[in-house]
Simulated assay, not measured.
Amino acid sequence: MSGQQRRPVVVLYERIADAIHDGTYPPGSTLPSEPKLATELGVSRPALREALLLLQEDGLLTVRRGVGRTVNDRPPRRGFELLRPLEELLSPAAPLRVRALLRALEEPTDFTTQHLLAPAGCELHFWESVLVGDGTPAALSHEWAAPEPVLEAARPAFAAALRTALSEPPASMLAVLSRHSRGLPLTAHSSVSATLLGRRRGEQLGRPADTPAVLITQVVRVGETPVLAAKHMLPTGAPALPVTHSF
């Protein structure tokens, strides 16, 4: 997944969203005109216009006649406001069923080394799951937990739950973490990009390899400690993911 490139408009969207959230364009401010902003960002006006439309749809910008594009007073936070398992977000009325494909221990990858600060030679819990609704696969999830000593220090109940997970009904790793963190703070940072399923993931989801999909990368922290990292693949036709109440 790391080798797949994101569309330029997605990268541009994220650049502007980051500028909004870091205060470069504060709430209530007006963005520069399209020609000026395109020059500042070094991009074409068609690409900029597409990114601005996406930002408007996602609630970060509002177009005001005679004024231009202004930053909303309360734009959705990057990383999402509400931390909830994907199976609940995609189907709030009746959570999707989690079908466990793999529950294993594995050595760190480049992804988990970067996001979970996992040292070489350690073992991480890895869960691969398909989320199913109405008998149809809706999403594919890969989730990794931080090394055991980190979990024991940050959330010992979560560490214990992972060790006994095979004896429990299938659930996502985030659902297990949330269950053992009630009343305790969890934060997350997530990013979204466009991609294609590819052959293996297409087979797991019952879709052609060239099916467009949304790839969500997520890191969950207890305080400043990353305890869970995940990649979620949502193919075209999956239930819509809420923008301002995401995971």
Rank of each mutant, 00 (worst) to 15 (best):
T62Q: 15
L31M: 06
I20M: 08
A93Y: 00
I16P: 02
R15C: 01
V11W: 00
A94F: 03
R64Q: 13
T39S: 10
R64L: 12
P35H: 11
E40Q: 14
G28W: 03
P35T: 13
R64N: 04
V43M: 06
G79T: 01
S91D: 12
E57V: 05
T39A: 15
G28C: 02
L90S: 14
E81M: 09
L61I: 09
K36M: 06
A100I: 00
E14A: 14
A100M: 02
T62W: 00
D58S: 11
V98P: 00
V98I: 02
D18M: 12
D18G: 13
R65M: 06
S33W: 02
R64E: 11
T62G: 05
V63T: 10
T24E: 09
R74T: 14
A17L: 09
R45E: 13
P92W: 07
L37Q: 10
R78W: 03
N72G: 13
L41A: 15
F80L: 09
S91V: 06
G68I: 08
T70Q: 15
R99F: 04
G66K: 00
L48W: 05
I16L: 04
S91M: 08
V67I: 14
A38V: 02
E87Q: 06
G59H: 10
P75I: 09
R97T: 15
G42K: 05
E87V: 06
R97G: 02
G28F: 02
